[in-house]
Design a protein around this nucleic acid. Structure first.
Length: 611
DNA sequence: ATAGGGTTAG
């Protein structure tokens, strides 16, 4: 833990170095009362080396512990890390022998050691340092049953333990219960809340901390800034930078880079660019990380030209791309459908003396999958046996199942399950897709789907949609729609794709009226239909020659400003052109359509390349 | 405990 390395430790070192302990040890009457230890030690100055060798030589664990407590009681003597670390093994043995902490304390008492608050506090600290958190909790509980009110230090430790056990609410209860919070109270809370990326609680605790007159150290400041920038609270990040300046922490390139990516993440590219210019203005030169943030930021917002200008800037600066930048480039080219260029970056890694990592692998797998160059897959099969992380595994499962290599996909899934990874909805979605495409009986797939739901992990719309779509694709319309309706009832997350898939099922089942009612239901639920939704329902209606319904939905589509694909437009034209009155009603719309046909017939291609 | 990066459905 970092917080031990601060000035408290320094102070102890100084005090110990000054050897006040020797004077106290010799003349304090209390020391004489403690018997054996005092007679042996008190005459000499109490040094860390001395204490350590005595701790090691001590014949019984109980005696060792009593001696440890006795030393700690001496004025201005503070145990060093070595002594504490040694005691971890000792108390571990005692706890094992006596089963419970209460019994250890009782045995201590029987052996003549007075049980004072300080004793329990030290015991707590030993367990805490030794990561024996269950025992630490026992000591803490024991304190109150002895009638001691835990002090700030004890409560700090307990809060830390509760955070480590993921008991955030209880940890914060302890935090709030600390009457006089010190720097460490805040620092521990902030460090845990930062690693949990809980920007809301970080905000609250940081405010309290400053109100009570403390400032985070530079490392914690950086962490806090990182959390705000990553969670879309860049405005707060900005305020944190102001605080850093006030408390004398230097604003490094890292800080600027974080803010740049933070502004992009919050969808404010102009502010990111302004900041970038500002940093140059004040003489802080951007590095590869800053450029990578810019590149990624522009790409995420579809500002392709700007993104490429960043690349040429990197080139003109003579900066050699590192593996992260190369990974971003592979990803960028893939998203633009420029698969060959993505491949070129990948093959250039060797020349650049860079080593591909799991990010590279995951991006390349997805690139191969999107480019449908499945013949490259066998080379990935080697990866199945190797160390897979969650994302790479997910990427592989997805790629294998889409390319009809269901058995490989299942192999990866099994591999991941055996590895004690926290499988997420990507994994389960890929798994279900592999099952459905691999021809598993619908009933089995649904059974597994329901089992996964019962796991109570966070599932998203993709997951449910994959199952429903899988059923639609094998013609199990009734089951598919039953699951879809249950999703609505249970308020499972559903998105445009989910509704579109359900409409597809209804269209295929020739239940056109129900398809139309799902369309209006989705609007009521606040989910707006997109081009694919309209394409699905309008093609269905055209096939059924439902002229009037086509007209109604076409108007809605036009009103919502959704542009149909050429294929669907053609179907509509075919159906309606037979009726003069309808043609005249839509004349202006149709004219625009035919104009667009002439200008660009490659509408679909564009939509593919933009993801 | 990390300044920047990777995976999904029609």
């Amino acid at each position: 833990m970092l917080w031990r390395c601060s000035w408290v430790k320094q102070r102890r070192k100084i005090l110990n170095a000054l050897s006040f302990s020797s004077i106290d040890g010799q003349f304090s009457p209390k020391a004489r009362e403690t018997g054996e230890f005092s007679r042996r030690v008190a005459l000499k100055p109490l040094t860390h080396d001395d204490v350590y060798s005595r701790l090691r030589e001590s014949p019984s664990d109980l005696k060792t512990l009593s001696f440890f407590f006795w030393c700690a009681k001496q004025n201005n003597y503070f145990h060093d890390d070595r002594a504490f670390d040694h005691m971890v093994g000792v108390v571990e043995k005692l706890a094992r022998r006596y089963k419970s902490v209460d019994r250890v304390v009782e045995e201590l008492r029987l052996s003549g050691c007075a049980i004072k608050p300080r004793v329990l506090l030290l015991l707590l600290e030993i367990f805490w340092r030794g990561h024996l958190y269950d025992k630490a909790i026992e000591v803490y509980k024991g304190m109150s049953s002895f009638g001691y009110v835990p002090n700030t230090r004890a409560m700090n430790m307990m809060m830390d333990v509760l955070f480590k056990y993921d008991l955030v609410d209880r940890a914060l209860e302890v935090f709030e219960g600390i009457r006089v919070r010190n720097f460490f109270s805040f620092d521990i809370a902030l460090s845990h809340l930062c690693s949990r990326r809980d920007s809301v609680k970080v905000k609250i605790v940081l405010k309290m901390m400053i109100r009570e007159g403390f400032y985070p150290n530079s490392e914690r400041f950086g962490q806090i800034l990182g959390v705000f920038c990553r969670t879309g609270c860049v405005a707060q990040g900005f305020q944190v930078v102001a605080l850093m300046v006030c408390s004398g922490v230097s604003v490094s390139v890292n800080v600027w880079s974080m803010l740049v990516s933070g502004f992009f993440r919050s969808g404010e590219p102009q502010k990111a660019v302004d900041l970038f210019n500002k940093m140059i203005q004040i003489g802080c030169s951007p590095n590869l990380v800053t450029y990578t943030s810019l590149l990624k930021g522009f790409m995420d917002l579809g500002m392709v030209d700007e993104a490429f200008s960043v690349l040429s800037r990197v080139q003109s600066k003579g900066l050699a791309p590192d593996i992260v930048l190369c990974n971003v480039m592979i990803h960028t080219f893939t998203r633009l459908g420029r698969f060959q260029e993505a491949r070129n970056v990948f093959t250039s890694l060797k020349k650049r003396k860079l080593v591909a990592d799991r990010y590279t692998f995951a991006s390349v797998v997805s690139s191969v999958c999107l480019s449908r160059e499945f013949d490259l897959l066998p080379s990935f099969a080697d990866g199945i046996g190797t160390e897979l992380d969650l994302v790479t595994g997910n990427s592989l499962i997805n790629c294998f199942s889409k390319s009809g290599h269901g058995s490989y996909a299942l192999k990866v899934f099994c591999n991941m399950s055996n590895k004690d990874l926290a499988l997420d909805c990507y994994t389960y979605t890929g798994f279900l897709t592999a099952l459905c495409l691999g021809g598993a009986p619908a009933r089995d797939a649904v059974g597994i789907y329901e089992k996964i739901i019962r796991k109570k992990i966070r599932l998203d719309a993709h997951f449910h949609t994959a199952m429903i779509d899988g059923l639609v694709e094998v013609g199990e319309y009734n089951t598919a729609l039953r699951l879809f309706n249950r999703c609505i009832l249970e308020k499972y997350p559903l998105d445009v794709v989910s509704y579109t898939v359900a409409i597809k099922g209804l269209v295929r089942a020739k239940r056109i009226d129900e398809a139309c009612s799902v369309l209006s239901k989705m609007r009521e639920a606040g989910v707006m239909p997109n081009r694919r939704t309209y394409r699905t329902i309008i093609s269905g209606l055209c096939e059924e020659k439902e002229k009037d319904k086509v007209k109604k939905i076409l108007w809605e589509c036009i009103e919502e400003g959704v542009e149909l694909d050429p294929n669907t437009k053609f179907k509509v034209l075919c159906l309606l052109s037979r009726y003069h009155r309808d043609v005249s009603e839509f004349r202006s719309v149709f004219e625009k359509w035919t104009y667009n046909f002439d200008v660009s017939g490659s509408c679909d291609e564009l939509s593919v390349s933009s993801g």
